[in-house]
């Protein structure tokens, strides 16, 4: 058990305190193209494929769509033909911690929440957990944002980015193909990859969102990565407060920050909202559930 696993601010919370109530869903006969459009517009990583009977519900995630892109499946195919099913569910009054363990053991990123009539009333994904952690931290008087330039403010026990980050940096070359990018992302289970030029400088980032956009616009998989990558690389120093990194990810609506050491060119890892949620501890080492105002 790591230090992060021992501390938790979520012990008293229920699924309904953290779940997202707006569930983006699509009819079973909708096309893959529409599914991608919904993901872009509503900024979600997965779309629920609806059904009258809960056991027939399905889901399509960005990861699923990228495989379909790789396999050259036409955009006009109905989502019911390619969706993932069955889904994993929980109830609004379930203990949040227990369900996070369940998500972890089942290797899924989200659970759908059913009411007593077996209707979907919410979805709980890791990024939503970050929202609630952030809210709890913000209420706390030890929050770093309360320091307001006070040099005597006690910063000693705060978690830093390096406590939660993944220390692995993989990259692709900008002239490599989209196909190679997909293979790399799938192999490493990454959501995004740094892109280098031939000189070895980092020149951008290509994410799953960029890939589904390319799929929607029917860019051949042989196209170069440079055609779809974003040139802006969001990064933070490894000794930055985790709270700051989460704040910046939320502000900039991105799911990950790359982590650099000494200077922004020296990228040593990546920290994602997923890592922050997995850490579950809020952002302060001293924090325990009893200190959190409920």
């Amino acid at each position: 058990m790591t230090l992060l696993d021992k501390k938790t601010t979520l012990s008293k919370l229920l699924v309904k305190d953290a779940m997202r109530r707006d569930v983006v869903q699509l009819d079973r006969d909708a096309s893959i193209e529409k599914c991608i459009r919904y993901m872009i517009k509503f900024k979600v990583n997965a779309v629920l494929i609806s059904s009258d009977y809960y056991r027939d519900l399905g889901v399509l995630s960005k990861t699923d769509l990228i495989s379909l892109y790789y396999a050259d499946i036409p955009l006009s195919v109905a989502v019911k033909e390619v969706m993932n099913a069955p889904l994993l569910f929980c109830l609004p009054d379930d203990q949040l911690e227990q369900k996070l363990d369940y998500m972890n053991q089942s290797a899924v990123r989200r659970l759908y929440v059913l009411d007593r009539d077996f209707r979907v009333v919410g979805v709980m994904a890791y990024s939503d957990i970050v929202g609630i952690l952030y809210r709890l931290c913000n209420k706390c008087s030890n929050n770093i944002f309360k320091a307001n330039g006070d040099k005597n403010f006690d910063f000693i026990d705060r978690l830093e980015v390096k406590d939660a980050m993944t220390r692995s940096v993989k990259s692709c070359l900008e002239e490599e193909s989209i196909q190679e990018l997909i293979e790399n992302l799938s192999e490493n289970k990454f959501g995004a990859m740094l892109i280098k030029n031939t000189k070895g400088d980092f020149v951008g980032v290509a994410s799953k969102t960029d890939l589904i956009w390319a799929y929607k616009h029917q860019l051949p998989c042989e196209s170069r990565i440079s055609q779809i990558m974003s040139k802006k690389i969001f990064s933070c120093p490894e000794d930055d407060f985790l709270a700051n990194a989460i704040h910046n990810m939320i502000i900039n609506d991105v799911q990950r920050y790359f982590v650099h050491k000494q200077n922004p060119d020296n990228i040593v890892g990546v920290v994602s909202l997923y890592d922050a949620a997995r850490a579950r501890s809020g952002t302060c080492k001293a924090c325990t559930a009893s200190k959190i105002p409920q």
């Binding site: 872009i40 517009k41 509503f42 900024k43 990024s127 970050v130 929202g131 952030y134 809210r135 913000n138 209420k139 944002f145 704040h247 939320i250 502000i251 900039n252 609506d253």
Partner: peptide, 23 residues
């Protein structure tokens, strides 16, 4: 506007010193 709306808008009410232009 739906696209411009930040994903975590629900927790923004509790965040201080947010500069909308930066966001």
């Amino acid at each position: 506007l739906l696209f411009l709306r930040p994903k975590h808008i629900d927790i923004w009410g509790e965040m201080e010193d947010i500069i909308p232009e930066e966001v």
